[in-house]
């Protein structure tokens, strides 16, 4: 059986309170609905952090299990979806933490350029971006994602957590076991490096 109901459509568990009650009673229908509504978003979150489809799927399953085990403790102060998102990020981070440390020295050539007078070297910025003229939205997305993947792992993770998952500096520091200062440095370097990698796109040159 496959469940493909639109959220907000007719049927049981459309209301968050209903759904929550169903989940607390352990009803299979409620669990199916809960999974169907959230799994797409969770897969995306896990995949962009762990960069491996199988590992991402494991994260998602583990996140659902944790969520259901703790559903009685969920008090409805936050949105169910927000709560689940946080659990998924934590699962993905656990996978990441178990990986080996990655080399961090690859980012230097991608950092901003200065001359010997401490003056910035920066070509003029075009008034109007032409990236939109050259590439479709989907092509643009694909290109940007591929450039993000070129960032060294320790920078990429910080960029994704801060800019995409919107964790704050303290949360990222805690999740990765590094200082807040270190999070800021990595975030800034990651953005600078990504800017350099995207320069041809930003300036409307062929990628």
């Amino acid at each position: 059986m496959v469940l493909q109901k639109e959220p907000g459509g007719d049927g049981p568990f459309n209301d968050e309170e209903d759904l929550l009650a169903g989940l607390k009673r352990g009803e299979r229908g409620a669990v199916s609905r809960f999974v169907a509504d959230n799994i797409g978003r969770m897969r995306a979150v896990a995949a962009r952090l762990v960069k491996d489809e199988d590992l991402a799927e494991d994260c998602v399953q583990e996140a659902f299990i944790k969520a259901l085990k703790n559903i009685d403790r969920f008090e409805g102060r936050a949105k169910l979806r927000t709560w689940l998102h946080r659990i998924t990020v934590n699962e993905a981070l656990m996978v990441l933490r178990s990986r080996k440390r990655l080399a961090e020295d690859l980012i230097d050539p991608l950092l901003p350029d200065f001359d010997e007078n401490a003056c910035r070297l920066e070509a003029p910025w075009p008034k109007r971006l032409s990236a939109e003229d050259i590439l479709s939205q989907a092509e643009q997305r694909a290109l940007v994602l591929s450039k993000i993947d070129e960032l060294p792992e320790s920078y990429r993770i910080v960029l994704v957590l801060r800019d995409i998952e919107e964790l704050d500096t303290a949360e990222v520091a805690e999740a990765l076991g590094i200082t807040e200062g270190n999070v800021k440095v990595r975030l800034h370097r990651a953005r600078s490096a990504l800017k350099k990698l995207l320069e041809p796109l930003l300036r409307g040159e062929a990628p």
Partner: peptide, 16 residues
């Protein structure tokens, strides 16, 4: 960067 991750397909209910 933000837009790149904004995948409209991920928000739709999926087969489970």
């Amino acid at each position: 960067g933000k837009r790149a991750f904004d995948d409209p397909a991920a928000v739709l209910p999926q087969t489970v």
